[in-house]
Amino acid sequence: MISNVSFAGGAMAPFNRRKDGSSFRDWARAAVQGALDDANLEVSDIDALVVASESDFFTMQLNPAALLADECGLVGVAAKRVEGGGASGHLAVHAGVAEVASGMARRVLVLGVEPSASHLKGTDVGALYGLSFDAWTDGMTGIDSTSLYALSAQAFMARTGATVADFARIAVRNRAHACANANAHLPLDISLDEVTASPVVASPYRRLDCSPLSDGAAAIILARTSDLPARPQGRARFRAAVSAVDTVRLGERSDPGFFAGKQRAAQRAYAAAGVTAADIGMAEVYDSYSGAQLQSLEALGLANGQTIAAEREDVFSAQGAVPVNLSGGLLGQGAPVGATGVAQVLSAALQLEGRYFGQQVANAPRFALVDTHGGIATLNAVSILEAP
C-alpha cells in the first residue's frame, strides 16, 4: 500500500485542435503554472520533473524533459521523460509516485503534453500509432489502430453479447459529460441514432465511436502531505499505482476480446490498496473507442462479471453506482496522448476532494480508480486514489 503520497494540485491546458499558432511549450507552461497555483507552491518548491510525451514525431523535439524544464523555469531539478504509448501520462504519474514514496524527491511535478492534432496529418498520425503495436507485424504492414481495436471489439461482442447500441450509448454519455467540462475537446449533445448513422471507420466502429486527435497539456504535483502547505479540506492520496503488460500481438492472445493485462494490473492494484472492486465509487477509464470502455470495465471487475447488464442499467452513468468518465473521457475530453493519463488522475483527485471543474459526482466516494493503456490494452496502468 502507498500511504505517503498526496495530490498537491493540478491543472490543464484545454484539449482541442490548436489553430492559434501556439505550441506544446505554451500549453506546458500554462498547465504547470496552473498546477503551482492550485497547490499554493512556487517553482522553487519543485525538485523533480517527470515529462510524458508519446512521440518525438509530434513535438519534433528529442530530450523534451530538459527543454520543458527550461521552459517552465525548472533549471536545476532532476528531470526525465516517460513513454508507454497511450499510457505514457499515467506511467509518468507512477514514476512521480515512486520518487516521492522512496524519498528520492520531496515535490514532483508530472507534466504530460502532446501536439497530436495540429502538427501532422491525421493519416500520418494513424501510421505512427500503428507502430505502437508490433511495428514489424502490424504497423509496417499498413494495419492501423482502429482496425486492431475493431477486431478486438468483434471478439468481445461475440463472447458477451454486447451490441453496437451499447457502444453508441457510451459515445453519447461521455460526450454529454464533456459538456460540463470547459477543457474538453468534444462536448457534444448527440443521439444514439447520430452515432450509429455516422460513417463506418472499421466495423463495428463508426466515426462517433472514436476519440479525437487532440492537442493539450496537463500537470499535477505530488508530495508527502508534510511537505505541503496546510489545506483544511485535506488532500486526495494514492493507495496503489500498478502496471502490467499483455502479449503485444493481438492474434496470439487466447481471447483477443478480453483485456487480460488490464485485469492483472487491476487485481494487483486492489491487493496493494487493500480494497476490492466493490469499494470503487467512481472511475476514469481509457475509452479510446466506445467499446474499449466496456472491455476495460469488464477487465477492471467493476460490475461483478455483469458488465453488459450494468451498462444497460446505467450503473456507469453520472447517477449510477459507479460513475465513469465524468470528465468526458477520451471520447469527450480529448486525447493528447502524453497528457491523457495525467488529466485522468487530475480529474479523479479533484472529484475526491469535491472541487472538480466539470460534472461533480453526486455522492463523493472514498475510492476512485484511474485506468489507462497503450496498444490494445497491452501496457496497462491502474491507480487507486483515496479521498481526504
Rank of each mutant, 00 (worst) to 15 (best):
F357W: 15
Q33W: 11
P187Y: 04
A8R: 02
L369C: 11
T123W: 11
M157Y: 08
D193F: 09
T146V: 14
V97Y: 09
R235C: 06
D144S: 08
F258S: 07
V51G: 01
V248G: 12
A153G: 10
V97L: 14
R239V: 08
P187Q: 12
D70I: 08
Q359F: 05
A271V: 13
A48G: 05
L36S: 03
G338R: 07
V32S: 06
D209F: 14
V195H: 10
Q61M: 13
V125E: 00
A127N: 05
T141P: 06
V382P: 02
A11Q: 00
Q61K: 13
V51N: 00
D193R: 11
G375T: 02
L109R: 08
A69I: 06
Y205D: 13
A271G: 13
A87Q: 10
H185A: 07
G257N: 10
V93S: 01
A381I: 10
N174E: 15
M140S: 10
F58R: 09
A78Q: 15
A11Y: 00
A153Q: 08
A272M: 15
G375M: 04
G9I: 01
E54A: 14
P199K: 14
G334H: 03
Y356H: 15
P115G: 05
A30F: 09
P336C: 08
T196Q: 08
F167H: 11
R312T: 04
T59E: 08
Y149I: 07
N325S: 00
V100P: 09
A241P: 02
G328Q: 03
P365C: 11
G112N: 07
S327T: 05
D287F: 06
A48C: 11
V77D: 08
T225M: 13
A162E: 01
L68T: 06
R224P: 04
A343Y: 02
T247K: 15
F259V: 00
P336Q: 09
V315R: 05
N4C: 12
S22P: 06
T160F: 09
Q295T: 05
F7M: 11
S290L: 07
D193M: 08
G375A: 05
Y286W: 06
L109C: 09
A348M: 15
A219V: 04
A180Q: 12
G85T: 03
H185C: 10
R264W: 01
H373Q: 07
A171V: 11
A348C: 15
S211Q: 03
A273E: 01
G103I: 12
M140C: 13
V345M: 13
P323R: 01
A48E: 11
S6T: 12
A343E: 03
A283Q: 04
L369V: 12
R231T: 14
A180N: 13
T247G: 13
A292K: 10
G257Y: 09
T160R: 06
D124W: 10
N16F: 15
A35G: 12
V242A: 08
H119D: 11
V164H: 05
A271W: 11
G84I: 07
P256W: 08
A362N: 14
H90A: 15
Q267W: 07
D189F: 15
V324R: 02
S88N: 13
W136E: 09
S214A: 03
A299H: 01
F58P: 04
